[in-house]
Amino acid sequence: MNLDTRIKFRHLLCFLEIARQGSFARAADAMAVSQPAISKTLKELEDLLGTRLFERDKAGVELTAAGTRFMRYAGPCVQALREGVNTLRSDRHEPPLVRVGVLSTVESQLMPLVLQRLHARHPALVVSVATGPGAYLLGQLHVGDLDLVIGRMTDSPQVQGLAFEHLYSEAMTLIVRPGHPLLPLGPAAREAASRYPLVLPLAGTTIRKHADSLFVQCGIELSAQRLETLSPTLSRRYVLGSDAIWVAPRDAVRLELGLGELSELDLGVHEPGGSVGLCSNAALPLPLPAHWVCEVVREVAGQYRQGEQALPPQA
């Protein structure tokens, strides 16, 4: 059987939208069709491929191993076709565009330095930045909606099938406001730490696993009063106005620690650190603007590895 003549573009669009949304209902809304129509189209594709692409449960749908393999090719295929059509329709003077997914681990410090240096070298470059949990951003990378994802993500199952380049290792740290009651206690603060509010990454994220590991090493029970967020801005504001303890990636607070605006709580135990890296879809050639981003990210990451302070942007 020649599958090339049986599998239609609508099958691929349906498959990718279900993978993107994690739900038949949301995929149907996004495509402006009925849910039975979505289910029928997917059933046709699964019959043609002779395998199940999704596992269904009350919480939604998840890709099977076969579905994950298929997405490695379906996403770039659809994205390449869209880009080919756009080259015929768009203005030839349209500025270059790169789409980057940025995790909270690099949002506050590394990415602003990268963007400053990028725009110093490429004044017409448009950088579209998406933020959110690693699983979401890697899913966007799989289906071709992003060119790159930058951050700490190696523990995420969605990284399978993608190309990951290690940039530097970064540990989690405990952050409080200057003058916090626990600061003078040093390691003895472990016994009292559970009585204070906590600021933690969202449950289920890669960075949350590292945060939980740090508390296990310190022998501290999680406080019942918690703020769970991936927003460095919200976390920073909350900690500065309260006695909360923020379990943060060092990059998120590097500048404030150097200026003395935030303080590091030393409990005598340090999280070993996770791999911050650059992720791309190996099944789809990187556009030239994405190569520009990779070049600058590697430069700034090299300074991090050498322990240098953040430098002004350079051309």
Rank of each mutant, 00 (worst) to 15 (best):
I18P: 03
D266L: 02
L230K: 06
P96T: 01
T5F: 11
Y73D: 00
L255K: 13
V276N: 02
P96Y: 01
C14L: 11
P96D: 05
S156C: 11
S223D: 07
L182K: 14
A188L: 15
P285N: 14
T173R: 15
E271W: 14
Q79M: 13
L200G: 06
I38E: 05
P36C: 01
F54Y: 08
L288G: 00
M71Y: 06
L284S: 12
C294R: 13
G132Y: 04
R69T: 14
N86Y: 09
V129N: 07
D91C: 05
V293C: 11
E17D: 11
V253W: 07
V293E: 00
W246K: 09
D29L: 10
A211I: 01
I7C: 05
V143H: 07
T229E: 02
P76I: 12
P157T: 12
D251S: 15
L222M: 02
P95K: 12
P184E: 01
W292K: 05
D4I: 02
Y73E: 07
T105K: 02
F9T: 14
R56D: 10
T206L: 00
Q217M: 15
L16F: 03
D47G: 12
S156M: 07
A252H: 03
V98K: 11
Q217T: 13
V100L: 09
A59L: 09
K43C: 06
P123F: 04
H210I: 04
E94M: 15
L13F: 04
E264T: 08
E261L: 13
P178A: 06
D4A: 06
G139E: 10
G268Y: 11
T105I: 09
G151D: 02
W292P: 00
A301Q: 04
C14G: 13
P181G: 05
L81R: 14
L284D: 10
D243I: 02
R121M: 06
P197I: 02
L88I: 02
E271K: 14
R250F: 06
R26C: 03
N2E: 10
L3V: 08
L162E: 00
R177F: 00
A27S: 15
Y136P: 01
G186L: 07
M153W: 01
C218A: 15
A224G: 13
Q303V: 02
S242R: 07
S90Q: 14
S108K: 10
V127C: 13
D47E: 14
A189F: 12
R117C: 06
S235A: 15
Y196C: 04
A120E: 01
S263K: 12
A248Q: 04
V159M: 04
P197A: 12
D147V: 05
V276C: 10
G134D: 10
V300D: 01
P36E: 08
H11G: 01
R20N: 08
L141P: 02
R250V: 00
V78Y: 03
E308N: 09
E94R: 15
F9A: 11
F54L: 03
N2R: 15
P123M: 08
H210Q: 15
M31D: 08
R195H: 13
S128Q: 15
F70T: 05
Q35W: 06
G67W: 03
E107Y: 03
